[in-house]
Design a protein around this nucleic acid. Structure first.
Lengths: 346, 346
DNA sequence: AGTCGATCCTATAACGTTATAGTTTTTCCA
DNA sequence: TGGAAAAACTATAACGTTATAGGATCGACT
């Protein structure tokens, strides 16, 4: 353990070149070098060429701290991740797609999860107060989301995964959970199911409202029974969901389940099977998922894919456009599922 | 879409206070305020109190860019994430646990995934050349890992998820895959299985070697057949794994499978079942997983849990200790599975 | 009384960059 | 040929912090 503190190999070091180094090497002023590197119009072509060549040769890299101090620009995108959300690769997919979209740009990705015991406002306030990011991506939006109000008030560019309902526009990417709910009920109706049991996300989330609204309206229109799971949401632990479903389904059971995520779907199926039901026989189950998995679990399940990767890269692009004051190609997008996307594994 | 660019709500703004502001408010010199806030021994107690009180009242927050420029300290921990690794919450668990361990410290978490088309050295070189992090956590170590050699040469503190084999010590956290392999074979032997088929990680990874070594030695000691999956690894796509297993098992099939991860296990089981095998009857399957899921998939599976959360917080603590020149409580740790951890869902 | 040593505080420079105003050189035209 | 304008470059200050060397004040010891 001792070798760990001292270094195992010799230092190769050499000082990191700065604008000063290049200025000395080319005989130009520091300011000229700076302007040449950013292709300012009042620098001669030949000079620019020489500066660029020298910079490359010396391995010059901008000192981000100095730029940040001088300009106030951080080149940081903060991703606020809710750790409460039901993940199953949702999180890593989102992360990877944002990081991928950031490749080749000047932006770095700082991840700030917030935890159960934390006020969701904490990371937001921190970023605003310390000016530690140029823009923020946040997920798990609520209809009236104090984080978003705060960001808007402080003119911090942001983009959300999920819509809000607060009377002003902002960049977002959302999955159309209302349509998901409608089409899920429709798929179940086509299989002659009459009583839908839905495990929705926590009610104070925007996407829960959409999903419940879509499903309940469609069920009503078709004269089907609609029942919201009691005591559990799609964010509950798998054990809790399994237990709740097992109990509820040992009674006069519903004949259909809608789940909003991979883990809740698996737990619900386990619960229903424990109560003696069988998918495809006296039960059908609809879920969406971020990775293809559920059909290997039970091929009779009706599953639709949610393209989280598209969400991530869209949000990254929209946010950078907002930061740089450019008009985004599109600032808002909705991923709308089609009836034909709801498939079994057969 | 137009409202999006201009701001929906009025700016509240007020300038951010600096040391200068506090100096003016207290009548002290900027340097004194700076030293008072860091509790330097040559500042009077009463003065310190006054400065702290004023700082709090004005809502002072250090400007990180200035500190970074002046001291060279970034307060950034970079997490290099391999996107090739089989995830299933492995990634998000690791991420969350690191972020959680960083709470209350001065460190931020910058995530840099690297992608298939990228040289794994790229992010490492970038960080070293731009001095953009105080320390680095990396996963997916190789026996002789050029990233680690480079970091050691440049004296950048780092900690790895997984061991290496390069002749010098460094902080790491590793899961003992050799013991996993041994115990997996043992569990299969107890169920009278005689022919083990193993879907290992890509061979150039450290943990693949360990797993294969442990399993093959134990199999040899017990006179069991040992067969390495051909053409697929645990990082292959689920479809590829399922197909490969289905083909191999339609022949004179092995009677046991060892998989290193949730997704590969699910795909392998799907393939074996397609070939007509049945878990618990003429087949047993061992896997490990980062979240409890596989027993809901097939309760007959033999599963052991890998505590990725412990890995993350250990790595964060060890790395910060290294950065700050402190001796870590422990700098290296191995999570060793026990025979009793291998359980079915019954 | 003089000096020494604490104790507490301050002035200054520097980190690397960029914005601004200004200076020199060249070009062009009447 | 004189002068103005355009082109190309430079000097300087500033962003907010910290390290360093140094200054003032006071009590204590000889």
């Amino acid at each position: 353990m001792d070798e760990m503190t001292e270094s195992p190999l010799p230092l190769v070091g050499a000082e990191r070149p700065t604008l000063k180094t290049i200025a000395a090497a080319t005989g130009l002023a520091i300011a000229t070098v700076s302007r040449a590197l950013k292709d300012a119009p009042d620098i001669g072509e030949e000079t620019k060429r020489r500066v660029r060549e020298t910079a490359l040769r010396l391995g010059y890299r901008q000192n981000r701290a100095a730029v940040r101090l001088r300009t106030g620009k951080t080149n940081v995108i903060a991703l606020l991740l809710s750790t409460e959300s039901d993940v199953m690769n949702h999180t890593s997919k989102l992360l990877y797609s944002i990081a991928d979209a950031l490749r080749g740009t000047a932006y770095h990705l700082v991840v700030m999860p917030f935890f159960r015991d934390q006020d969701p406002m904490d990371p937001v306030r921190y970023i605003v107060e310390t000016e530690s990011a140029d823009g923020i991506i946040l997920n798990q939006t609520k209809p009236d989301d104090p984080r978003i109000r705060y960001l808007a008030e402080h003119h911090i560019p942001f983009a959300t995964h999920g819509r809000t309902d607060m009377g002003f526009e902002h960049p977002y990417f959302d999955y159309d959970n209302e349509t998901f709910g409608r089409l899920a009920v429709q798929a179940l109706a086509e299989r002659q199911r009459r009583h839908v049991y839905i495990i929705a996300p926590p009610r104070n989330h925007m996407y829960a409202r959409h999903m419940i609204m879509g499903a309940s309206q469609e069920a009503a229109a078709r004269g089907m029974r609609f029942e919201l799971a009691e005591g559990v949401t799609s964010d509950s632990s798998a054990d809790d969901i399994e237990t709740a479903v097992a109990q509820r389904f040992s009674d006069t059971a519903p004949d259909a389940i809608i789940a909003g995520s991979t883990t809740s779907a698996i737990a619900a199926v386990a619960g229903a099977e424990r109560a003696g039901l069988q998918i495809g026989k006296n039960l059908d189950v609809v879920s969406k998922e971020a990775i293809r998995l559920l059909h290997r679990f039970r091929k009779e399940m009706i599953v639709v894919q949610e393209d989280v990767g598209r969400a991530g890269s869209f949000l990254a692009r929209a946010l950078i456009a907002a930061i740089e004051g450019r008009a985004p190609d599109e600032g808002q997008a909705l991923e709308v599922p089609q009836a034909s996307d709801f498939r079994t594994g057969n």
